[in-house]
């Protein structure tokens, strides 16, 4: 564990906490894309299939449980909680997210490190995570009405991706044989998707103004 990896995990954790705080305390999910949250739930479910069979550390298992539990509970809140679900921007959040899954699955079947059930699903989760933010970014662009918590949630998620890239660079230079092209390229694509959002986030932060995206 290096400092970049830890910082990445902590920003990831913080992003989830910010979102849960918004949903649980303010009882609102306005501006949050259910499509993206459903994709994340699938990402964690397929990536952490090995949670019972392979043990790395208590830290890892605990974090996996947190990400699984939080992603499914966020989906539950948005779909079924009587107050929260009323605040969901159903009409704006129309990205056809299921269509992202098929290409990711096909790509995972074609490009993977090992052709086994667990390995293909694990690779699928990497590809799907790379594009899972798209419905959220489209929703932001449409509503243009971004409250602070939603902005911070996406900012922290992007931060998590950025720190993971630094972690990979660090590990590449400090650990022999640490080469994982699939993880890196999927991670890089994912981080690039945030670039536009980051640009406007920093602009609003610099000018001390509310975050607004151009039409």
């Amino acid at each position: 564990m290096n400092i970049f990896r830890l910082a990445g995990d902590m920003t990831h954790l913080a992003s989830v906490l910010v979102l849960l705080l918004k949903i649980h305390t303010i009882k609102s999910c306005a501006g949050v894309s259910l499509k993206t949250q459903e994709l994340y739930a699938i990402v964690f479910a397929t990536r952490y299939l090995d949670i019972l069979t392979s043990f790395v550390s208590i830290y890892n298992t605990l974090m996996k449980l947190i990400f699984l539990g939080s992603s499914f509970s966020i989906v539950w809140y948005m779909k079924y909680h009587k107050t929260v679900r009323r605040t969901y921007d159903r009409d704006q959040d129309t990205f056809r997210h299921w269509f992202l899954m098929l290409p990711c699955l096909l790509l995972a079947l074609l490009i993977h490190e090992k052709f086994t059930f667990f390995e293909v699903l694990w690779t699928f989760s990497l590809y799907l995570e790379a594009v899972a933010i798209l419905p959220q970014l489209v929703l932001l662009q449409r509503t243009r009405n971004i409250d602070n918590l939603t902005g911070q949630y996406i900012f922290l998620l992007g931060g998590y991706r950025g720190f993971y890239i630094l972690n990979w660079i660090y590990r590449y230079f400090t650990e022999p044989h640490y080469v994982h092209w699939i993880t890196w390229i999927a991670g890089l694509v994912q981080t690039l998707l945030y670039a536009d959002f980051f640009y406007y986030y920093f602009l609003s932060w610099k000018n001390n103004k509310k975050l607004q995206l151009p039409a």
Partner: peptide, 10 residues
């Protein structure tokens, strides 16, 4: 064995 390294990430 190399592959196990990646699995230690989240």
């Amino acid at each position: 064995e190399e592959h196990e390294e990646t699995k230690d990430e989240l």
